[in-house]
Design a protein around this nucleic acid. Structure first.
Length: 424
RNA sequence: AGAGGGUUGGCGGAGUGGUCGAACGCGGCGGUCUUGAAAACCGUUGUACCGCGAGGUACCGGGGGUUCGAAUCCCUCACCCUCUGCCA
C-alpha cells in the first residue's frame, strides 16, 4: 500500500496517478485518506494524553499504598475511573479510524511511474521492440494442443480425471522437457547472481496481505479453509514475504532471490476457446526472480531483470516482443511493468510469458520491509519481481514454432538438460 | 494426534502485580589510551505512532480479559522443546 504521508503530502500527484490508471474516484479516495488520517491523529493525541494522566495517577496510587495511606489511595482511584472510561472510548474510536484508513489504503493501487504510458486498455500498451524472426510454418501445422496428443507428452484428459480441467499431466519427454526448462532457468538465474530459494507452497493470510494478493485478489488463490492457508499463485508471495517485518542492513543489498515453484490459480470465470491447451492453467510451473534494493537503484535493477529474461528467450530461439504496460493495464501493486510475449506460430498470437515489475515501496510498506542506511537511519526499500520464466506458454511456443515433419526440434541450449534433441 | 514444559531487546539470560522499555553478560557503535591494533576503561545501543518542541503513548510470541496499575494473573490462538503415537 501507499504510505499515508506520501498521499497526504503529495495529494495532487496521488490524484493524478490514480486518474491515470482510470480510477474515476481518485480525488475522493485521496480526500478520504487525508480526512481519516486527520481524525486518527487527533484521536491518538487525545488518547495519549488521557493515558499519560492515568499512568501518573496509577503511580501515585502505588506510592500511597506503599506509604500505607490507603484512604488517600482510594480517593485517587475514584478519579481514574472517569479517565478509564474516556480512554476506552478513545481507543475504540482510534481503532475504528485506523481500520477504516487501512481499508481505504488497501483499495488504492500503486501510483504509476512517470514513464508509464497513458491508456486504459491492453491496446494502449506500448510495444518497445520485437526480436527474432516469426517462423513460417507449413500449411498443415498444428497448434500445441494437437501436438501434445500426437506425441503423447501432455495429457489433459488424465489430468481432468484425477484433478479437473486445467491440471495437465506431463508424461515422458513432456515431463523431461519441464524439468529441463526449470533447471535451465535456475542455472541462468544463479549465474546472474540470484540465490535459489525453495519456499513453502502454502502460505498464511499475513503473507497474502504482505504482497498484496489479499484482500483484493482473494478469488485468485486456492484456499485450505480449515487451516487458513493459501496455495501460492506465484513464488513471489513466499519469497518476498521472507522479508516481512525485516530491517535489512545496507550491505545485505541488493537481495537477489530466485525460486522454482508450481503456481496455483483459480482463474475463475476465465475459460474459453482463447485459453485452450497450455495457454491458461490452474497449476503451472514458473521460475521467479525477486529483487530488493534501494529506491535509487530499483529502475536499474528492473532493466537488469528485463535483460536477463530477454536473454533466456533469445537462447531458446523464441521470437518475442516487449510491452511497456499502460497505466490502466498495470497490476494493482505495480508502478511499472514490462511484459514479455513470445510468438506462438500455429496459434498466430503473442503469449505473455513474463511480467517484470517494480513495486517501488508499495509492497515494502505492507511488508514493513526496510533497511538501515549508512547513518543508521531506517529507510524504505523497493521490491521488484519478474518471471524468468513461466513454463506452459514457453512449451506451447517451442512445440508450435519448432514443429517439423519428423517431430519437434528441441532448442540447442536445452539438449544438455533434456538428453534428447527431438520430440517424436 | 495425546501429555507436559516453554516463547523477554541483535544474541544469551534475569525478572511472578507498582517508578520495568525491562538487571546482568555478549555483540554493535562512539571515545580515551596506542605509530596502528588488541586489551583495559568511559559512554552509548529496539521499533512504531502522536507532538513545532519539551515530551508523551504503545509494544516482553499474536489477540482478548481481570486490575487504579500486567512482562508478571486469567482465557484463547500460533509457534518451539521433551516424551508417547504415527510416518517419508
Amino acid at each position: 500500500m501507499l504510505a499515508i504521508s506520501n498521499i497526504v503530502n503529495n495529494q495532487q500527484a496521488a490524484v493524478q496517478g490514480l486518474t491515470k490508471r482510470g480510477l474515476a474516484n481518485a480525488r475522493d479516495l485521496v480526500d478520504q485518506v487525508v480526512q481519516l488520517d486527520q481524525l486518527r491523529r487527533e484521536t491518538q493525541t487525545k488518547l495519549d494524553s488521557t493515558l499519560a494522566e492515568s499512568n501518573t495517577l496509577s503511580r501515585q496510587i502505588g506510592q500511597l499504598m506503599k506509604e500505607g495511606k490507603r484512604e488517600e489511595a482510594e480517593s485517587v482511584k475514584l478519579k481514574t475511573t472517569e479517565l478509564k472510561n474516556s480512554s476506552k472510548a478513545l481507543a475504540e474510536s482510534l481503532r475504528t479510524h485506523e481500520e477504516q484508513l487501512q481499508q481505504v489504503l488497501y483499495n488504492i493501487p500503486n501510483l504509476p511511474h512517470k514513464n508509464v504510458p497513458e491508456g486504459l486498455r491492453a491496446e494502449d500498451n506500448e510495444v518497445l521492440l520485437e526480436h527474432g524472426e516469426i517462423p513460417t510454418l507449413p500449411q498443415d501445422a498444428s497448434p500445441h494442443w494437437e501436438l501434445i496428443e500426437k506425441y503423447d507428452i501432455i495429457d489433459f484428459t488424465l489430468g481432468s480425471k484425477i484433478s479437473g480441467a486445467g491440471f495437465p499431466v506431463y508424461k515422458g519427454k513432456g515431463a523431461r522437457l519441464q524439468r529441463a526448462l526449470v533447471n535451465f532457468f535456475l542455472d541462468k538465474a544463479r549465474e546472474a547472481g540470484y540465490i535459489e530459494i525453495q519456499p513453502p507452497l502454502l502460505v498464511n493470510e499475513d503473507s497474502g496481505y504482505g504482497t498484496g494478493q489479499l484482500p483484493d485478489k482473494e478469488g485468485q488463490m486456492y484456499e485450505i479453509v480449515d487451516q487458513k492457508l493459501f496455495l501460492i499463485p506465484t513464488a513471489e508471495v513466499p519469497i518476498t514475504n521472507l522479508y516481512r517485518n525485516v530491517i535489512l542492513q545496507e550491505n545485505d543489498l541488493p537481495v537477489k532471490n530466485t525460486g522454482y515453484t508450481p503456481c496455483f490459480r483459480r482463474e475463475a470465470g476465465s475459460w474459453g476457446a482463447h485459453v485452450r491447451g497450455l495457454n491458461r492453467l490452474h497449476q503451472f510451473d514458473k521460475v521467479e526472480l525477486v529483487h530488493i534494493t534501494q529506491p535509487e537503484h530499483s529502475y536499474a535493477a528492473l532493466e537488469e531483470m528485463l535483460l536477463h529474461t530477454r536473454q533466456l528467450l533469445e537462447q531458446l530461439e523464441l521470437p518475442y516482443r516487449i510491452l511497456k504496460l499502460c497505466a490502466g493495464d498495470l497490476g494493482f501493486t505495480s508502478a511499472f511493468t514490462y511484459d514479455l510475449e513470445v510468438y506462438s506460430a500455429a496459434q498466430e498470437q503473442w503469449l505473455e510469458v513474463s511480467s517484470v515489475s517494480n513495486f517501488e515501496t508499495y509492497q515494502a510498506n505492507r511488508l514493513k520491509l526496510r533497511y538501515k542506511d549508512g547513518n543508521n537511519k531506517t529507510q524504505m526499500l523497493h521490491t521488484l519481481n519478474g518471471s524468468a520464466l513461466a513454463l506452459p506458454r514457453i512449451v506451447a511456443a517451442i512445440l508450435e514454432n519448432n514443429q517439423q515433419a519428423e517431430g519437434v526440434k528441441v532448442p540447442d541450449v536445452l539438449i544438455p538438460y533434456t538428453g534428447f534433441n527431438i520430440i517424436n
